[in-house]
Design a protein around this nucleic acid. Structure first.
Length: 659
RNA sequence: GCGCCCGUAGCUCAGCUGGAUAGAGCGACUGGCUACGAACCAGUAGGUCGGGAGUUCGAAUCUCUCCGGGCGCACCA
């Protein structure tokens, strides 16, 4: 409702300024005033016009206000302060709009988007940093879908990189297991219900250390072994590649299981092995050469390489660009950015090639596909999106910018403009948390505000460990309260609350704030947390349960009542303010998408819950004697409940029946 | 050296395209369960918005500069 009225007022003001002053103002600033005494919408536009019109802002505001009459949905306008224009809504009409609810199934926007997130190297267990990535990405997917977009969710799998090679070196050389025995070991672990990704977490850390533990000559030999292993994996068709395939696939399945615990699902898993074997790069290379984005360097430190100019670089015609980005090395191999350019051409349907597809992981209501050289028929088609979002941490903004630069240079300007690096800062550990976990922390590190998580060092909090810990904690709380419920019900509720707490925790911070992780904060269920919002939902539901009615029945009954009498006066301000908050859904959605910032929705959900709790405390609904007022109060609870549940679902958080 | 991010209450963070008295949670202190569940609510204390300069009718928000912290800048991925 808010967004609709805001747009209505905006366009009215725009046309008014044009008629009255002959001014075209593209963006009329409209804001929600800090206090209801200033109305529900306001604009400081008169200040901006004061200079152009050579008049006092107050006079201009007065002129605008007198021309602003009879705008549907508004009760009146007034000038305040030095020249603010404050708008008061027709409260009864507003309430009716909110009751009607903005359609949840919004008309398809027609936009086809692709969101890539998670993308964990399949050589170790997922940790809290990966959780932030996946939760941000999954929530953004829900927001785009809520806005009517068709969205494909992809999780890129680098199954042929050095990280996988390192753990393969661990299996083959540190553990000394030949291919057949690795296969056996994986079976045994699986049989014992042990987490393979956990096993690899330790082995990967050990291998990383092993590279540096020997004598200089030994370390040199180990590094050689590392790269020989990497090249065998890249080439494929040998035992080493077979081991890599087994391990990376087993770990990948674990990642999908971990994410499924958080209600995170994927549509397609493109793998680097197919990008290599299906020769995506060769097609991209041709296009890059033809468009002149890549050129062969014949001098300087990059002599013998195919390079591209970095974004923002200024090189005079004919000068040597020593700072250029190498895409093809002098030995003929392609760098990471090169492969990424090819992959992104595919994402936009510009490559002229496609993956083979094969079903890989089955969710309750859909299938997740994986890339393969020769796929099955029939299969869905992915790629060819109009807009893409890459959920990748801020440290990779340089390579991301290179890819965008290449697309733009090739003439794909629209695509480059619809390429969003959805960047976010890392999740680090507070020194206290690291000590708590039993890691050795140096004196120097103890003084730092936070310590970076490192898979290579095996330093971090594993995702499943955190989820297990959260569930244990919520289970204890549920057991203390839900004495009448059976085991299965309690476990279900504990799970819903644990996931709510975790997802909210990862979403409450804005993207470019580093999260210094601490168990005390993450395991909190009070204050600005997911469970706080879930609790508001449970309270609202209990009102209807005890009152033996439903939100739907109440809203139907409410339609016959004139709400105006209950919305005026000092005592009604808090209730009206709750209705206004409930009316902000699409406004917040639009803002989240425009800024790629899910934290705004998290904040909105919390504030709505807070206002509901306040309302709940001040007005006792079921004992209200005036039947019409009781219906009004019930309708207020119904609307708050509906909006809380929708907001939570967009955050990927369930609304428990009890807690 | 160059680039990006951050610096707001004791702690952790919001503060939308510059706008009306700078907010929340946690922590501290005080009060509220015989009313729809206290995972809740109310109140009190707590801030030179890192420092300085500038633009503006108006700056936590924009520009410059300095200080402090973090991250990038490979023929690694």
């Amino acid at each position: 409702m808010y967004l609709e009225l805001q747009k209505r007022l905006g366009s009215r003001l725009r046309s008014l300024l044009e008629e009255k002053y002959g001014l075209l103002v593209e963006n009329i600033p409209l804001e929600i005033p800090p206090d209801l005494k200033f109305g529900e919408l306001a604009t400081p536009i008169a200040f901006e016009l004061a200079r152009k019109l050579r008049k006092a802002p107050r006079i201009i505001a007065q002129e605008i206000v007198s021309a602003l009459n009879g705008l549907e949905g508004f009760a009146g306008f007034e000038v305040a302060g030095a020249g603010y224009i404050n708008a008061r809504l027709d409260r009864a009409a507003g309430v009716r709009l909110v009751v009607g609810g903005e359609s949840l199934a919004r008309a398809s926007s027609g936009l086809h988007s692709l969101v890539e997130h998670t993308s964990i190297n399949p050589n170790k267990a997922a940790h809290i940093g990966h959780l932030r990535n996946a939760i941000l990405g999954d929530t953004f997917v829900r927001l785009l879908r809520a806005a009517g977009q068709k969205v494909d969710v992809q999780n890129y799998i680098d199954n042929t990189g050095v990280q996988v090679a390192d753990v393969v070196v661990g299996f083959l050389h540190l553990e000394g297991l030949p291919e057949a025995e690795v296969r056996q070991l994986l079976e045994v672990l699986k049989g014992n219900g042990e987490r393979i990704d956990y096993y690899c977490w330790d082995l990967y850390a050990r291998t990383s250390q092993w590279y540096e533990q020997g004598t200089a000559e030994e370390n040199e030999a180990r590094k050689e072994l590392r790269y020989a292993t990497l090249h065998e994996i890249e080439r494929g068709g040998n035992d080493t590649a077979e081991v890599a395939e087994m391990i990376s696939t087993a770990v990948l399945r674990r990642h999908l299981e971990t994410m499924q615990r958080l209600d995170i699902e994927y549509d397609f898993l493109p793998r680097e092995s197919e990008i290599l074997h299906l020769k995506f790069w060769e097609s991209a290379f041709e296009q890059l050469k033809q468009t002149g984005v890549l050129y062969f360097e014949s001098e300087g430190k990059n002599k013998g390489c195919w390079v591209m100019t970095r974004p923002g670089a200024e090189v005079a015609e004919g000068d040597l660009d020593e700072d250029s980005k190498v895409i093809v090395r002098s030995n003929g191999t392609v760098t990471y950015v090169g492969k990424d350019i090819a992959y992104h051409l595919w994402k936009f349907g510009l490559l002229g090639k496609d993956f083979g597809y094969q079903p890989f992981f089955t969710y309750p209501d859909h299938e997740c596909w994986i890339s393969t050289e020769q796929g099955v028929e029939p299969h869905p088609h992915f790629g060819g999106a109009q807009a893409i979002y890459n959920v990748i941490d801020a440290r990779q903004s340089d390579p991301q910018a290179n890819v965008i630069q290449a697309l733009r240079g090739m003439g794909h300007v629209d695509q480059a403009n619809r390429y969003t690096h959805f960047s976010y800062e890392m999740v680090a550990l507070t020194p206290r948390c690291a000590v708590e976990l039993g890691y050795d922390v140096s004196e120097e590190d103890l003084k730092r505000p936070y310590l970076e998580v490192s898979g290579r060092k095996g330093f971090g909090v594993k995702a499943d460990d955190l989820i297990d810990k959260l569930i244990a904690a919520t289970r204890a709380e549920v057991d203390a309260r839900q004495t009448g419920r059976d085991e299965a019900e309690r476990q279900k509720i504990a799970g819903q609350i644990a996931i709510g707490a975790l997802r909210y925790f990862m979403l409450k911070f804005t993207r470019n704030s580093v999260i210094a992780f601490d168990f005390k904060d993450a395991l909190s269920f009070e204050g600005e947390t997911g469970p706080y919002i879930q609790y508001a939902v449970v309270r609202a539901r209990n009102i209807f349960r005890k009152g033996e009615t439903t939100p739907e029945a109440v809203l139907a009954e409410f339609a016959a009542i004139d709400p105006a009498a209950y919305l005026e006066g000092e005592a009604a301000e808090d209730i009206w303010s709750l209705w206004l908050r409930a009316a902000r859904r699409t406004l917040v959605l639009e803002q989240c998408i425009a800024t790629s910032e899910p934290a705004y929705l998290a904040k909105h959900a919390f504030q709505l819950a807070q206002e509901f709790n306040n309302f709940y405390h001040r007005h006792h609904i079921l004992t209200e004697e005036d039947p019409k007022r009781k219906t009004f109060l019930l309708a207020t609870a119904a609307v708050a409940l509906r909006e809380l549940v929708v907001a939570l679902s967009w955050l990927g958080i369930e609304s428990p029946e009890a807690m």
